[in-house]
Amino acid sequence: MPDKPKVAFYWCASCGGCEEAVVDLAEKILDVVAAVDIVFWPVALDFKKSDVEAMEDGSILASFVNGAIRTTEQEEMALLLRRKSKVLVAFGSCAHLGGIPALANLWDREAIFDTAYRTTASTVNPEGTLPQVSLAHNGDRVHLPGFYNTVRALDQVTEVDYYIPGCAPTPNIIAGAVETLLGGDLPPAGTVLTPDIALCEDCPRLDTKPQELTIERFRRPHEVIADEGTCLLAQGLLCMGPATRSGCGHLCINGNMPCTGCFGPTSKVRDQGAKYLSAIASMLGFEDEAAIDRALDGIPDPVGTFYRYGLAGSLLRRRKMTPVDA
């Protein structure tokens, strides 16, 4: 009997939700396990880095890497898995476009360290110790991963073959992607393995979106009890649906919450946030600047709204504070 195809899972700068998403496949995971050999999955199985290093280059069919790249260790593992795998899949929003961790690109390493290790109310650090890449400990030299100034998406570190978007990817998307990869009839490299159309297309509320939508005031979800049958954008809630890939089954909409954009843009858009800002600007029902400013006050965190999952992968990439040293 020929060997089953080998697959690997790995996590970088992520919350663990993507790992949960794999487990969320529930009984379907048994099909996956039956079809493949999982040769590396730190969250669940006890394989070591050295096991991977020992494999032949290209011997893994597919590695699913979630999380953004923030440290030297993550970069090293990404490059290792790239080398060992035929197919490298960026799994979830963080690997795809940087995700929530990439919002750290609004600051730099120094500012992040300062906040995390010095100034937060809960920090007790009288010596002012900061993370270091190398230090003496009990007479030994300890080497630790370095912390980059800029958080990157996986494809900003190494070549990525496919993307499975989502924060986290939904079970049907994962199952579909695995099926595609095992099926052998591979789509062109660089494909995002979801429908290439915006979420509105299959939104159950699309018909209630007025043809001429003008927004005079933006509301945040906690400020309003949204009507369950009506287009959320029409209710002033900043739903990212028009600028976000579909395929998620509009779970947030079903929960009466606006889309936050985790599936990223369609293939024709380079910068989801900029594109949607452009669209939203066209919906403002005002001529005078003061009124426009007042309306925009309803979006207190524009980067966190329009670039919630995509800052690293966007044209902006990061706030320019220091030279981008990667």
């Binding site: 290439d196 939508l213 028009p242």
Partner: peptide, 15 residues
């Protein structure tokens, strides 16, 4: 319009 990519979100129509 690339019809098969259009989600029918209506953003463009009044503009």
């Amino acid at each position: 319009v690339v019809t098969e990519e259009c989600s029918g979100c209506k953003t463009c129509i009044p503009l």
